[in-house]
């Protein structure tokens, strides 16, 4: 169970099959503490599955995943407590509709960490302030816009004080005018030193915020490196074709 490199998260030869469908075909990935890694690639390339396998929402077929020094895929691992060290933000927000905004944020610290309601809610208010939504504490998630819901979801994940944040296409379900407010929160988080793995279609965000860009296709990492280099000077033909389609959708053949 040792992880000599001291990375925040490390993925080793990760394989995932859905029946005969090989979604991940041997992924190796290491994210250093404080780094922001963006994962891009065409739909079906396995980037979401990679993220979901990292905190075992999806059970990997083979391979190992480490959080800090602990292997989450070890058969004796305390999956629940290791999971809580990684925060996850979903495309569809997944706020708990039967609870208010502040209860959404305070629930896991109370249930999992045993915090008192007063403590959990006080810290929840701090997080709400950070995402600019303190006036919505008592509101129902239903009454919020998509962008607001996603900011609450980020605050909810942060409430568990994770070492790593995983973003699974966090802005893909949003109306275009609401994407900015969520990206702004993510950017601030990155600047605050949070370790992040971000599956995204936002090339601007990838270029400006991330330390390393990973391009996935067909269940493998095709290319990875400095974002500016990968985006403007991709080595692989597949990366080039994908970027051409994404950056100039009109020119598609």
């Amino acid at each position: 169970m040792s992880n000599p490199t001291g990375a925040a998260v490390r993925v080793e030869r990760l394989v995932k099959h859905f029946g005969a469908n090989e979604v991940l075909r041997g992924i190796d990935l290491e994210v250093a503490r404080g780094d922001v890694v963006c994962v891009i690639g065409p739909s079906g390339s396995g980037k979401s599955t990679l993220l979901r396998c990292m905190n075992l929402i999806e059970t990997p077929t083979a391979g190992r995943v480490f959080v800090g020094d602990d292997e989450i895929t070890h058969h004796k691992a305390d999956t629940n407590s290791l999971r809580s060290r990684m925060g996850m933000v979903f495309q569809s927000f997944n706020l708990f509709p039967h609870r208010t905004v502040i209860e959404n944020i305070a629930m896991a610290p109370m249930v999992v960490k045993g915090l008192s309601k007063a403590d959990a809610q006080a810290r929840g208010m701090e997080l709400l302030r950070r995402v600019g939504l303190e006036e919505k504490a008592g509101a129902s998630p239903r009454s919020l816009s998509g962008g607001q819901q996603q900011r609450v979801a980020i605050a909810r994940a942060l409430a568990m004080e994770p070492e790593v944040m995983l973003f699974d296409e966090a802005t893909s379900a949003l109306d275009p005018e609401l994407v900015g407010e969520v990206l702004a929160v993510m950017r601030e988080l990155a600047e605050g030193g949070m370790t992040m793995v971000v599956v995204t279609h936002e090339m601007g965000f990838a270029r400006e915020v991330c330390d390393r860009l990973v391009f996935m296709d067909g269940g493998v990492i095709v290319e990875s490196g400095d974002p500016a280099t990968v985006l403007s000077n991709p080595v692989h033909e597949r990366t080039r074709r994908f970027l051409a389609r994404v950056l100039e959708p009109e020119a598609e053949v």
Partner: peptide
């Protein structure tokens, strides 16, 4: 929805806690 369970479990809740609270 499946996403509700995924969100709860990703926050570290056990299967039982997720069932009872969510």
């Amino acid at each position: 929805e499946r996403g509700q369970v995924e969100a709860a479990r990703s926050l570290g809740m056990s299967n039982r806690q997720c069932l009872r609270k969510i």
